[in-house]
Amino acid sequence: MHLTDPQVRTKSSRMYPCDPVEVGGVINLDFDEQGRLIGIEVLAANSKLPEYLLKSSEHLDAGDA
């Protein structure tokens, strides 16, 4: 999930992995150089997110991210 303008390519400068035990899976938070949250990566999203959200999202291959 990108939280920036899709027309502007924002580079992630830091990734914070959330505790997999605490959140019940692997979730990574991406931050830009100013420390602003710019993206959320949910691994195995189909087992963590509601179906309506998955259907309405744009799916990227690992090489596209």
Results as ranks from 00 to 15, higher is better:
residue 13 S to I: 01
residue 36 R to Y: 12
residue 44 A to M: 10
residue 30 D to Y: 01
residue 60 L to P: 01
residue 10 T to W: 05
residue 10 T to I: 15
residue 14 R to W: 08
residue 26 V to I: 11
residue 7 Q to T: 13
residue 34 Q to V: 06
residue 4 T to G: 02
residue 27 I to D: 04
residue 17 P to A: 10
residue 23 V to Q: 06
residue 28 N to G: 02
residue 65 A to C: 08
residue 9 R to I: 11
residue 18 C to L: 15
residue 37 L to E: 09
residue 29 L to P: 04
residue 45 A to P: 02
residue 23 V to E: 05
residue 43 L to C: 03
residue 12 S to G: 13
residue 3 L to P: 04
residue 65 A to E: 13
residue 1 M to Q: 07
residue 57 S to G: 07
residue 19 D to I: 10
residue 22 E to W: 11
residue 34 Q to K: 14
residue 26 V to G: 01
residue 28 N to P: 00
residue 53 L to R: 00
residue 8 V to R: 15
residue 61 D to P: 01
residue 51 E to L: 00
residue 11 K to C: 05
residue 10 T to A: 08
residue 4 T to A: 11
residue 42 V to P: 00
residue 30 D to N: 12
residue 60 L to Q: 09
residue 3 L to D: 10
residue 2 H to G: 13
residue 27 I to T: 12
residue 58 E to L: 02
residue 43 L to D: 09
residue 1 M to V: 10
residue 28 N to F: 10
residue 45 A to C: 12
residue 24 G to T: 09
residue 29 L to C: 08
residue 65 A to R: 15
residue 47 S to C: 06
residue 14 R to V: 05
residue 44 A to Y: 04
residue 41 E to V: 11
residue 31 F to Y: 15
residue 27 I to R: 04
residue 1 M to A: 10
residue 40 I to G: 02
residue 44 A to D: 14
residue 11 K to N: 10
residue 6 P to Y: 03
residue 47 S to G: 14
residue 33 E to R: 15
residue 42 V to E: 00
residue 37 L to Q: 10
residue 34 Q to I: 03
residue 51 E to N: 01
residue 60 L to G: 02
residue 42 V to G: 00
residue 62 A to K: 14
residue 17 P to K: 09
residue 3 L to E: 10
residue 41 E to D: 14
residue 11 K to E: 15
residue 25 G to F: 06
residue 20 P to L: 04
residue 64 D to Y: 06
residue 59 H to W: 14
residue 62 A to W: 07
residue 5 D to R: 14
residue 38 I to A: 02
residue 28 N to Y: 07
residue 35 G to K: 09
residue 46 N to P: 02
residue 64 D to Q: 15
residue 11 K to T: 15
residue 57 S to N: 00
residue 24 G to S: 07
residue 35 G to R: 08
residue 44 A to F: 05
residue 19 D to W: 09
residue 12 S to V: 12
residue 38 I to P: 01
residue 46 N to R: 12
residue 50 P to E: 03
residue 22 E to C: 09
residue 6 P to V: 05
residue 59 H to I: 08
residue 55 K to C: 00
residue 15 M to C: 06
residue 25 G to Q: 08
residue 31 F to L: 12
residue 52 Y to P: 03
residue 20 P to G: 05
residue 44 A to P: 00
residue 2 H to N: 12
residue 4 T to C: 09
residue 29 L to R: 14
residue 20 P to C: 07
residue 50 P to D: 09
residue 62 A to S: 11
residue 57 S to C: 04
residue 37 L to C: 10
residue 17 P to R: 12
residue 28 N to R: 13
residue 57 S to I: 01
residue 22 E to I: 11
residue 64 D to M: 14
residue 65 A to V: 15
residue 59 H to C: 03
residue 26 V to T: 13
residue 49 L to A: 04
residue 31 F to E: 07
residue 33 E to T: 13
residue 56 S to E: 02
residue 25 G to S: 10
residue 19 D to A: 10
residue 23 V to H: 05
residue 46 N to A: 09
residue 42 V to F: 00
residue 36 R to N: 15
residue 51 E to Q: 07
